[in-house]
Amino acid sequence: MKRTIRSFAVAVAAALTLSACGGSDTSTDSADGASDEPSSDGGTVAVAYDLGGRGDGGFNDLAYAGAAAAAEAQGAEVTEATAQETDTDQDRAARLELMAESGANPVVTVGYLYATALTEVAPKYPDTWFAIVDDATVDQPNVVGLTFAANEGSFLVGAVAALESETGSVGFIGGVDTELINEFEAGFVAGVEAADDSVEVSSSYLTQPPDFAGFNDPTRGLESANGLYDASADIVFAAAGGSNAGVFDAAESAGTKVIGVDSDQYETTEAPLNEVIISSMLKRVDVGVQTFIESVADGSVEAGERRFDLSTEGVGYSTSGDMLSEETISAVDALAEQVISGEITVPTTVG
């Protein structure tokens, strides 16, 4: 497992670095969110991003990496649009309708916030395929829900935190207190307990629904992390989207460590700040998006939920920077095998 995880981290980091620097020639992003260039013979793939947009070094960039890889293979173009903090469901629906009206097929929506809008829009465009990342509630014959066993990946980094902690205290920061992010916390807490049940876990959420700014507020991330570090935590797992940047800054100032999320954030964060990131919980949104687009192209696509877990390498953890001991890696890999075999069932809720 160790070799597989490392090879994935390096490959995706390269794609994310290109993404953060402005993308590739297959990408367009006009003011209204739709491509203003003629489609190639391969058609157009559309991506509607979550808060933070492309360049976030994580969730959204992974979606772009998957879309760009599939589009390049098909000779297609990628058109993009980014969510705003002030968006309503009507705004999101209008964005998706614009993409579908422009002829994009398929359309990928990044994040569960698009669920209500997609439920409204998908029936209007029955010949267009849509995917939604991190949601499986949209029951339409032309919608695929791409979900990931975040609890399983978080379980692994929980074990990492417990085994690498020197103070016996670790922390969790969630961007917004939602069911999805609770799944990250549940897995993390279970992983800590599995590796060393004497280690204490403190948790904090940056915002409560309907305020979703916690996914893109580095200042709040910094303040929350400072509180955990001041209370003796020496490693914090941050599942807070763009707010993770603030957590990294707090760790650098405190001389402590962080576990990143979604992408290998050691590779996507500039040095020397990346030296605070000992691992990341990898959620392979890129693979999910690429698989979906390819299935539309070859006609094998089927509506419904498509879940990616440890057994399919849909989630995992990174070892970039060589900051984890060999003992920790061996122990975590052994726990991963127990999850895959069914010997360990990782909870999805806390408590």
Rank of each mutant, 00 (worst) to 15 (best):
P272Y: 01
E326G: 07
D56P: 02
F130R: 04
P126D: 15
D134C: 04
E305Y: 03
S253M: 12
G75A: 09
T28C: 08
A161Q: 04
S19K: 00
T147I: 11
E185L: 14
T348P: 03
S165A: 08
F215A: 02
G246H: 06
G75H: 04
R6H: 15
V296Q: 02
Q74Y: 00
D56N: 06
D91K: 02
E166T: 12
G288S: 06
A63L: 08
S224Q: 13
L180V: 12
F59L: 03
M1S: 02
T26G: 03
G221F: 02
R284M: 07
I293D: 08
G158D: 13
E343W: 03
A68R: 03
V339W: 06
P123E: 15
L18T: 10
E200M: 09
D41W: 10
I277N: 09
A190L: 02
G227V: 05
A136E: 12
A104W: 01
A14K: 15
N244A: 06
G145V: 11
V108T: 07
A81K: 05
D309V: 01
T116Y: 00
T82Q: 13
A81D: 11
Q74N: 10
G103A: 05
V110P: 05
A46Y: 07
R306F: 05
D36M: 12
T147Y: 13
A63F: 06
T109Q: 09
R6I: 06
G316E: 11
A150L: 15
G55E: 03
M99Y: 01
D217T: 12
G299Q: 00
A46P: 00
P106W: 12
G260E: 14
V144W: 09
S253Y: 05
A194W: 06
F184Q: 05
E80R: 14
V247T: 13
A83D: 03
A48L: 14
S40G: 14
G55S: 05
D50L: 03
A186Y: 02
A240P: 11
V160S: 09
D298F: 02
T26R: 15
D333W: 05
D197F: 00
